[in-house]
Design a protein around this nucleic acid. Structure first.
Lengths: 134, 134
DNA sequence: ATCTCCGTTTAGAATTATTCCAAACAAAAG
DNA sequence: CTTTTGTTTGGAATAATTCTAAACGGAGAT
């Protein structure tokens, strides 16, 4: 059942420990965008240090991305199976995932502008609930 | 001479204090993307607390943007006169500004996906120096 | 199965970027 | 010039994240 998660970890060169299986499965099955603390609250058997360690590893191998810059000042984490971007409500700090945008032209432009091989991206849009100005 | 900077502050509803004039002028005339500490090193007569306070105000009125998520764990700041995006060399942490991309289709897509009025964006691409695999 | 190796986990201590505080100050308006 | 109101400041406080060193446990080899 968590063979899928186990395989995912091993494909990315990470040893499949119990904690990593639990944490990655948690991220894959929750639509939320939790902080380390929030994860720890739901998975109290995994120490906070391990949650930080594990998240760091998952970010390294691109299974997870960090969402920074929210009003609460904490890092939020997001399982990143397929590429998407984030829309953040600056009033409520709600984070919405969206993928109705093709990033390839942007990556092309970035390569052209910098000469670098582009390896990834973070796109975050900020918005507010319309006031219905009428 | 700093009438331009003074006007810029006032247009954005900020009182034009000596410290704000100095700090904003500093950001406008430096291509670098400094941290609060780096600014404080160059402008030691402005207290560190004021540098943080002032940067916060400048970010509020969209004259400055925060660049987070670099390897050093610190926030970097960037004068944001005209919209652009960032390309970050993940090996060297070098930050490159680029503007050869029209964000409007992305903003449209985000509005469509979220129903929010889009007020801003942060786009960051990550890349590495080509190894010349040849 | 058992052994061994080496990466992982852990509790708690340490770090440090950033925020908070309350008193002194200085822009801008009247 | 006086007042008002927002700003600046040094230092203390906060808290998210990282570090440390000892115990542990996957997983390949025997």
């Amino acid at each position: 059942m968590d063979d899928k998660v186990r395989t995912l970890l091993q494909e990315h060169g990470l040893k499949a420990t119990q904690q990593r299986l639990t944490l990655l499965d948690y991220l894959m099955t929750h639509e939320t965008h939790p902080t380390a603390e929030m994860i720890h609250a739901d998975l109290p058997d995994i120490s906070l240090a391990t949650i930080y360690n594990t998240l760091e590893k998952l970010v390294e191998v691109d299974l997870v991305v960090i969402i920074e810059g929210l009003a609460d000042g904490k890092r939020h984490y997001d399982f990143f199976a397929e590429p998407h971007y984030h829309i953040i409500d600056t009033d409520t700090s709600e984070i919405i995932d969206a993928n109705n945008f093709d990033p390839r032209p942007l990556m092309q432009a970035a390569r052209k502008a910098s000469g670098l091989n582009i390896t990834g991206y973070h796109i975050e849009l900020y918005g507010v609930e319309p006031k219905d100005k009428k």
